[in-house]
Amino acid sequence: MDIKGLVEVKGLWKKFGGNEVLRGVDLRIMDGEIFVVIGRSGVGKSVLLKNLIGLMRPDRGEIYYKGREISRASQREWKKIRKEFAVVFQHSALFDSMNVEDNVEFGLKRMTRFSENEMRRRARECLSMVGLEGIENMKVSQLSGGMKKRVAIARAIALSPKVIFYDEPTTGLDPIMSSIITELIKRMNREVPSTSLIITHDLKFTFQAASTVAMLHHGRIIEVGKPEEMMRSENPIVKRFIEGTPE
């Protein structure tokens, strides 16, 4: 078996009771790319993501990271893997008991030996990378949705991760904030530098940011390709999804 991708998924199955959500998902994500998984609501995109980041265990199949199988790794091994993985959650998932700076420093505190000063400097650096300055002491509840998303990205990049996972990064944002986040994700991919795996149903985002697109449907990946290839796809399901025509 040859594993060429930085992250590679082979025959992933996941069911809940009788609900087979993932039925043999295969993915190959190459180093440095922006890989976008699209699919309709409820198709299992978040479940796929949770399997990839170790929040759920697959029933069957393998997940490789740097050539190593990780889905059955021990808690201790996951602690190491997580230093190289970062996640930006759909609703940002900032800790609302802390201010902005403590949120960004949270991972640094437990995964580095940085001094207080080094942490503060790094937090400020990350916040300025996402275009936020001078908000270190603000409470999470005082932030708008777009600001929360950017703070979540700042928190994610603080540890210079190898892979950044995003769950619906543009959902619920206004069109302008959406574009800002799209550009930010592309910039983070270059500047951190990292590989990005994004799940979304936002096509505008997908065609602006993706280097590779995969479509998840009925528990399987039914088509993979460059954005222009997806646009020209002959697959009726992909076509319908892109055109937005109901059944």
Binding site: K50, L55, F85, V87, F95, D96, F106, M111
Partner: peptide, 17 residues
């Protein structure tokens, strides 16, 4: 409960807490 439904618990895991 609020942390759970707003994915903060998941975020704790991914930040090794």
């Amino acid at each position: 409960g609020t942390m759970k439904v707003s994915e903060q618990i998941d975020a704790l895991y991914t930040l090794n807490a």
